[in-house]
Design a protein around this nucleic acid. Structure first.
Lengths: 200, 200, 200, 200
DNA sequence: TATGAATGAGGTTTCATTCAT
DNA sequence: TATGAATGAAACCTCATTCAT
């Protein structure tokens, strides 16, 4: 007797709830500092049920880190690196990035935790790193575009881009308890400076 | 029977060795992921001895995070915010900062771990935060100085400074396995851009 | 709505399949080492269904040990203790016993497990023991018959019989992976020696 | 500061006590049915301490099965397979074996458990099996000796010997709660029959 | 002071059993 | 009747801490 559609839907939601809870708790206390019992309690289910949805704690951790990447990357990669107006595009991109980073406090805290401890979670880190490379590549093309069109200062592209993603992660760390707010928007022009904008 | 000077010296060294080891291990694996046994083994002593020098694991952690701050802050705050040539001073400061951040991989990884998990270590975080505020204050004064002298773009000072320290932390995170090297120096001009330098 | 005959038959077969599987697994891994999930998987049904046929794991275990006894005892007790030719009868009996023991590897392994751990399964053991007593009684009568007719050495009957069933169980243990084969038949004359056969 | 001799001695005794307890409990309830907590309680120590002496439950089990083998094998292999009076030697050997098997109830129950479940404990079984082969080899030489001297019936030696060790194990199983007593001695002449003794 | 054996709380995970579908 | 998600007791094992030597 296969599960009914309604049941499947319910399970999907439960799984999502566990994952959300796990992201928050892993972000707050790290892998070892988080217990399955805590996750279960906060997700409102018995701790045994966590194992219905995730084989092991490790599996849960991996899923908590990598599954949101899809959604995240869509928002983060949504800009045109071949734009005719690269300066405007860059500014929009930065705005979108800042907004996204502002709104994903727990998740990005978790991401930086994995990066810091990449030796402990090599496979999980791998996926994050792959995305990071993709992001840097696309931003690099936009910067190159801007430099060629003369609206950005000619400086070493690769380092500029690394500096930019570093700034984003660093902001997320420094503004750790700062909810998404107008404050974040204030950093848009600052971040833009990094690229050496040239207005004519 | 009071301890001889030689004994005192030996104990001091042992304590220092434990602390160094603890920094590395706490940085690699976090608080819960690190065991006293590991620290003792890597420091080359019996695990019982760790408790001779540090009452509890928590004490050790706190010491590992806060004790290096003195040395660190000396290097980091060593610039003149009232300099007559603020742009040069800024550039030198950035160089010194980058160099310091490049050379303290494990320690700064640990610092960012504490910031990320500040709810778990409120008192330890407090001390880091106090230093961070001091640093931002002094950099802010230098920036103000530079803006007044017209060598820096007039932009919101507080956010500029937060952006700058964010960039430093972000770089440390992104270049996590990058040893101190020429590569790091490449980020000096990039970081400088953040402040909007104006050459005449 | 009463079940149709076909359904009843199907259920009977399913129950038998579970029991067979349980015998093999309990024999291989013991009571605690065997899980209902394993039994269900190997029997090709959902683990929930096992509980449709057997109330608890204990019930299943008891059934796995005792239900085959009927069939087993029929084969094992199939000899004539009042035979006119007790030596021939004895030899035939041994042959039949050896053959049966050879062919019921898993089941007899399970039986010896229950005997070994009789304190854990007192009621189950009771039934095995009752059968064992029956068997020993009947063999004892045949031996007595043989001794009276002068074709068996006059030796303590009870111990001879215990020795004989011990030998059977011991062989089953020692030849644990030996499938039913000619090899087993080689033990018939050896076993016969135990009774001190006297040929005239 | 190394441990004092007195401490070492104490630890040795504690280890032995754990092992003894483990033998009894593993024999009674099998591997899965025995808990470290039970072993610790019965040995009169905290359950954490068990892990000071044995890394894992598996290690403890292996030690419980194999360590007594040394002592056991000395008693069991103590006969002269080249004796000038093989029939007497055989009888003495049987007496010694029966006595030993009678006195080692728990341990031999454990041994038969391992044999029954050899797939679960392949390495542990290996050691038992090696000893069994040694024993069978030596008994076989004594039997050959006896057959050559005409005091034993000429029958297949290998199977005779396997029959004999099977009988011993089977007796241990059947007399599971029978303490060492005169009863056991009654089985000496029965066992002897297996070899077909010829008196002249 | 240095050592490491002893302790037991608490972690992850397994699994028999219940029960809604 | 058949299924398998939900539950929580209990297993093994780790580890901070204590304390005797």
């Amino acid at each position: 007797m296969p599960l009914s559609e309604a049941q499947k839907e319910k399970m999907k939601q439960k799984r999502a709830r566990i994952l959300e809870t796990a992201i928050v708790l892993f972000a707050e206390a790290g892998y070892e500092g988080t217990t399955i019992k805590q996750v279960a309690a906060k997700a409102g289910i018995s701790f045994g049920s966590v194992f219905t949805y995730f084989e092991t704690k490790e599996t849960l951790f991996h899923a908590a880190v990598t599954e949101p990447l899809d959604h995240f990357s869509k928002k983060i990669l949504d800009f045109d690196d071949a734009s005719e107006k690269p300066l405007e595009e860059l500014e929009n991109m930065i705005g979108q990035h800042i907004e996204t980073y502002a709104s994903l406090s727990a998740y990005l805290n978790l991401v930086s935790y994995v990066i810091s401890h990449h030796n402990l979670f090599p496979e999980t880190f791998e996926e994050l790193d792959a995305f990071h490379e993709t992001l840097k590549g696309k931003v690099a093309r936009l910067v190159e575009n801007g430099q060629q069109k003369g609206v950005l200062l000619e400086q070493e592209i690769e380092h500029t881009v690394t500096g930019y993603t570093s700034l984003l992660m660093g902001l997320r760390l420094n503004l750790i308890d700062e909810p998404a707010s107008d404050l974040w928007a204030k950093f848009i022009p600052i971040a833009l400076q990094l690229f050496g904008p040239r207005y004519h």
